[in-house]
């Protein structure tokens, strides 16, 4: 059902992705704010974006988006446009946790490696590499990267972005801020998913939004 409708291939499918800040309140309550969030929505056909339109927004040397796309498979490449929500109701105090949670599923038992590269003006500034083992649940193999701590670079970036007085200034900074996530099968080095993220600030009062596109070469 989900093929062609969201981020995934026959081998791996993204179920959830969220970046958040969270504060533990009194009586063990948690106050969580989502900066960005992808969840399973109702399936709709994806529009396409020519991958060459965004090459320069991501690393271009060996192992960059162009290289990766040429190696393929092309069906594993996606672009996500996020409208991020920076209207945090959570006070930014010591003890606030900044994290990222992502969840994948697939039909095979694999060990996956997930690389997340934060890029500024198309150049990688920081990379996180995580390895995740499969857990068999309800006939599918699940891969959960739960509450992975956000790197200092991103936390500082969010702080600085929030200090800008106008949304258009934030969007101007975000024009040159991107994240590239590459998920591979650790044992075979097969590319399973490649997701390019670009950002704008949400103008909605009701939180973060997104569009997903297929990356193609037309």
């Amino acid at each position: 059902v989900w093929q062609g409708c969201s981020i995934g291939t026959a081998k791996l499918h993204l179920l959830e992705f969220s970046a958040f800040m969270e504060q533990q309140g009194e009586t063990n309550t948690y106050n969580r704010h989502l900066f960005v969030h992808i969840s399973q929505g109702s399936p709709t056909a994806l529009e396409s974006v020519d991958v060459r339109q965004i090459y320069d927004k991501f690393p271009e040397k060996k192992g960059g988006l162009k290289d990766l796309y040429e190696r393929g498979p092309p069906g594993a490449f996606f672009l996500v446009k996020f409208w991020a929500d920076l209207n945090t109701g959570v006070p930014d105090e010591p003890g606030v946790f900044y994290g990222v949670t992502s969840q994948y599923e697939g039909p095979e038992n694999m060990t996956i490696t997930c690389s997340s590269k934060v890029c500024s003006f198309g150049k990688q500034v920081v990379e996180k590499v995580e390895t995740e083992y499969a857990r068999f649940e309800n006939g599918r193999f699940m891969y959960r990267m739960h509450r992975s701590p956000m790197c200092e670079y991103l936390i500082n970036f969010i702080h600085k972005l929030k200090q800008l007085p106008e949304k258009y200034m934030m969007n101007s900074v975000l024009e040159n801020f991107t994240i590239l996530q590459v998920v591979t099968n650790r044992d075979t080095q097969e590319l399973l998913l490649c997701v390019a993220y670009v950002f704008e600030i949400s103008t909605s009062e009701r939180g973060t939004q997104y569009h997903i596109y297929r990356l193609v070469k037309e």
Binding site: E47, S48, V49, R52, D56, E200, Q209, H211
Partner: peptide, 24 residues
Amino acid sequence: ERPDQVPMRKRQLPASFWEEPRPV
């Protein structure tokens, strides 16, 4: 082949790329 620092607004992107979805 590549746009090379052309502002995103001037690139060949779907109209939806600039339209924030309405909250459900």
